[in-house]
Each structure stands twice: as C-alpha cells, then as structure tokens.
Design a protein around this nucleic acid. Sequence first.
DNA 1: TCCACTAGCACTTTTGAAGGGA
DNA 2: ATCCCTTCAAAAGTGCTAGTGG
Length: 509
Amino acid sequence: MYVHEERPMLDYSYPLNPLTNNYGFYPQGNGMISHGEAELTSLPVHVALEGRELWDKFSNIGTEMLITKTGRRMFPSCKVTVTGLNPKVKYVVMMDMVPFDNNKYKWNRDHWELSGKSEPHLSSRFFIHPDSPALGERWMQYPISFHKLKLTNNTLNSNGLVILHSMHKYQPRLHIVQAPDPCRAQPGAYLRFTFPEAAFIAVTAYQNHEITKLKIDNNPFAKGFRDNGLNRKRFRDKDVQGKQGSGQQQSKTQSHQAGPSDSDEEADETVSSSVESHVLHSPDMKAPPTATSNPFISAFMNGGAGQQVWTQSPTSHQPQHTLNSNNRDSTRLSSLQYICASLPAGGRTLVAPQQQQDIQGIHSPAAHQAYPIQPDMDQSLPLPPKLSRVNLPENALRSLEMGSVLDHLNPWPLSNILNRIHARAEASGNAGKAVQGQPQHEQLPLVLERDTRPPFFPAAQDCGTTPYANQCSGPSEKPGGVISANKSICFQMISVRLIFVFVFSLATS
DNA sequence: TCCACTAGCACTTTTGAAGGGA
DNA sequence: ATCCCTTCAAAAGTGCTAGTGG
C-alpha cells in the first residue's frame, strides 16, 4: 500500500459516523512533539469524507474516473469535513492524487485485471482549495469541497489539472498546511490524509457499464442520459425508427431502472452545496472583478509576482490585466493548482483505520474515546460563500519558473520551506512589521541558500520506499522514463518555488 | 483485430450579466 | 443610489459514439 508513514507512533480513531470515515490525528502527548513543531500536529484533527454512501456504491463496483485531455471533474467529488483545527489559525487545504498500488489495470469483459507494472508516477499536482488560506473556523464551518478538481492524462496541460495515467489506480490525498505565523515566529506544520475508500481507476472511456449507470443516475449533469437515454434527440430518433439501440444503450437497459428521484437530491446536494474553486486562469477565461477578493491570491500576487509586481501597490491589482491577456505565452501559465507539484515526503500521512491496521497492525480505540466527535453530519450547514474565479498575473508565475537549475536536483521539502520561512521571520526580528514592506521581498534572492540552519521540521524522509520514489530518485532507468522524470523534476522545481512563495505570502498576508 | 484514446454531439446545470421594481 | 429578484444567454459539465492510430 502506498502510504508514506513516517511516525508509527501516530494514533488513529475509528470511524465515528457510519456514513463517513473520520481520520483522527492524535499525537501522543508525551513529549514526542519535536522542537519547534507547530500547533497543527498537536491538535486532534479529524477528517471525514462526505458522501460515503455514494462512494461506497461506486467502490463496490469499482470506481472509475474519466480523464480527458481538457480535464474532467471527479464524480463523486471529494468533500471532506474537518474538525479539530484551531479556529483562529490560518490553514491551507489542498488535494492531490497518489497511486494506490504499483499496478496497471485492464478491463476484461466484466472485471478489472492486472496488466503489468504501473507507469512512473508523475509528480503530484495540487489542487489548492480556493478559500486557502482561511481560519480553522472557516474550514470547520462547511464541508470542504473539491468538486472542481479536474483530472487529465495530458502531461502538458496548463489548465490547473491533476495529471494521472489511464488504467492506473489512484486515491485522493488531502493536505492541511498550517500557515506560518510570523508574529510568533513559528513555522507551519502540515497533515496529510489519504482516502482509500475513494480510490478509483483512471480511464479515458468508461469500461464498466454499471459505473456509467451509477454516474448517470447520480450526476445531475448526466440527467439527459437517464430513462435509457430516451431524453436525447439521438435516441428519440432512433426510437422512432425502430428502437435500434446501440450496444451501450442496451447495456444500460439491462439494469437501469432507478429513477432520478432519490439520487437526484443526493447528487444535487453534492454539487450545489460546495464552495467554488478558483481556477487561477486559463486563457479563455474572463477576469472577474473579484479576482483579488481572496487574500491568498492577493498575497500571492504581491508576493510572488517577481520584481515587476513588487513595485506595485498591494491594492493596485488589476486582475483584468493578468493572465487573460492575449499574451501568447499565457497558455502555458495558469493556475497554481496546476503548477504546484510534488509535495515532498516530509509530512504525516493519515490513512483509514483499516488501512492503518494493514500497515502497522495497531488499533487505537482509546483515541476514539478520547475525542468523541464532532461533526453532526445530519445537521444542515449553511451554504458557504461563493467565490469567483481569480487570476494570477502572468509575470508572477513566470518569475517563479525562473530559478536555479540546481533547484531541481534537490527539491525542497515543504518542511524545509517552512523552516526557511521561520528562519526568515526570526531574522527579520519583527516579522509582522517586516512583511508589510513589500519591497523587502523584492530583495530576497530567488534562490536561497539551503540547509544553513537545522530544520525545525522533521526532515523529509528518504522516499525510496515510497510511491514517490519516481519523483525523488531522478530519471528513470527506462528509456521512456527519462522524459517523464525530467518533466516530473521540472514540475517539482516550479512547484516547490510556488509553494515557497505561496506559504511565504501566507505569512505576510 | 483489438484496444486505448479523441473530438464532436446533444443534453443538462451553472453562472453571471442585464433589467426591472421596491 | 442601493438592494433584491427574475430572466436569459453563454459557459461548463455530462455520457455517447464514430472514428483514429498504435
């Protein structure tokens, strides 16, 4: 199982709600928290995957997620409930996909079977939740939805998509990153949660008709295919001409009896109750006037825009002048989610209890008792505020891609980045004031000296035994793997730089 | 021939601008 | 001038399917 477990001492709770899995994190309060470790890791953080009923339906059949060149949303989408955060501390929440195993799959008539070894995993690209950063109380107020996360098989995409291999199995992974607090000169920590029950096989066309049927029944966008697709003109015409259904239509007829009634509500709730994601920009998007409403984006625009932007007033953002320009390079510059890649192996991965037992063979009922929960899943929550799409200035992203070639040889673990922020906060003396002066940032070298001081975070573990070995170990030995490995390194280089600016912006926002 | 993949289609939902009324 | 509500067209998200290429 591809779970990067760094601290076997971690404790996990059992599911507390029959419809959700709650993954709790309870560090043992016996002084095991290392020096300088941030508050996040000392909190009883619970994460629960919403819509377990639907996920289970898919999982029982064998979840498939369509991936396309232009990107396809997940259905069901990942929506999680988080509890146990510090309500007054800012966090960044993001998601990526990690390989479920080392295998490649193929569909054989009516079942999935193994089809050899998996392709080298492309470095992860994060989908950063648009509300990031936000206070813990906000994250706990509403379920956190990632329904706008898109999957693609296009390794060259520039539209903020998560890249996957077709016919490979993946599972979602949630990251909660504590924004560094400059005033307290304390670095941020982060937690990771994987969702094995949401594992899926990425496909370019649905293989299992049962999955297709489930999607049609539950996804409101696919309503037009309900009632055996007879709503559609094409099928109506065919019906009139003698009901000469296609193979797929026939297959639907075999089992499709359920109306849209119940599933409608379920699906509608899934789609409508979520928060809008921000897609930082694709060339065909208009720049909305609310582009700077997100403080993170504002911070990023200020903090990551490179020299050209440093000279601007923080309030002088003109989102309509950003990536939506006709600049021909804009197609390769897009969202932060897309560019952010490959979180290093420095965090803590929390897995489902059963999975945890598989790995470590441990139980922890005490944890459950210690923190009897938490979210009332039946309680209706107010709809979260909606956000408009936001854009990043092109030069902000471009400047981040410019850096030392050496960077890709030693990508920074997130912990190192946070340590560096901490060091910088210390060096600045009064970080809260220092960060107000934007020009100071301009003077920061893009390529910072490394490892000049001991880390405050646990150093990234050697990832040779993890599924991310491909990311960390450089070019693959396979001839075909060199290119993808180089791509991976390139993504890493960009992403680490972005993460740095991103987190640093958090510290200063 | 098989299989993975793509592009375009028809359909539905979502979004946001525009307009009108209080 | 502002706010709220309704309307409507465009954009975006679905699975389907014919066709392509290895």
